[in-house]
Write a protein that binds this DNA or RNA. Sequence first.
DNA 1: ATGACAATCAGAGATTGA
Length: 259
Amino acid sequence: MKIASFNINGIKARLPALLDWLDEAQPDIVLMQEIKSVDEGFPQEPFEERGYHVETHGQKSFNGVGILSKLPLEDVTRGLPGDDTDEQARWIEATVVGDSALRLCGLYLPNGNPAPGPKYDYKLAWMTRLEARARDLLAQEEPFVMAGDYNIIPQDEDAKRPEVWQTDALALPQSRAAFRRLVNLGLTDAFRATNQAAGHYTFWDYQAGAWNRDDGIRIDHVLLSPQAADRLTGCGIDKEIRDREKPSDHVPIWVEMDI
DNA sequence: ATGACAATCAGAGATTGA
């Protein structure tokens, strides 16, 4: 089973590029971020024509997450638990049942800039809630995938120019520490489990020729529960699609699992 | 030192992103 995460940066602007990639990569499941659409505005038909079930948790203009799946999506829940006043659409969960059940968690973690400030406080608070959700899921001792745009550069080797990110919310020590706490609960960073090299990125800014200079950062991650990590057989980044017409500023990261 | 670039909503330019 191939499971991908992709920050598409707007479904309206990205539909052709997304469909082209889907037809080539043939993922069984896609966790999407930044759909930038309300649920009613998300075009389900082109995905259903390709055999995908579609579930979204959208909002107007910004944020928004969704799941495409060739298997039916069961027990869908929307919103990260822990703050009933949080109206930002950044979290969706669903279960797929192949040979066994797999819980999918798709997330769009807050950017947090400028830091310090209220946006950074929101990011750190959101990460505390994320850690709590991970603890609850781990207690169930079943396979789950927690994938999306984490807006975290875990280590300096995950950026072409780490020095320019030192005071950025994506790389500040508090951000990295929160990400480590999450991983240290017992989750596996699928990319790092299969590839230890520096210089692998999932985001290149549209500005200043970042793509042409390979000035990227690795901020989209797939974390696996122990039971899911046992089924991991591969992980990759579809870097080449960043070079196409009207690309997202992110590219997909995917895992192959023996499920 | 600043802006670059893109998407959204709206119908110009502010806001957001990373």
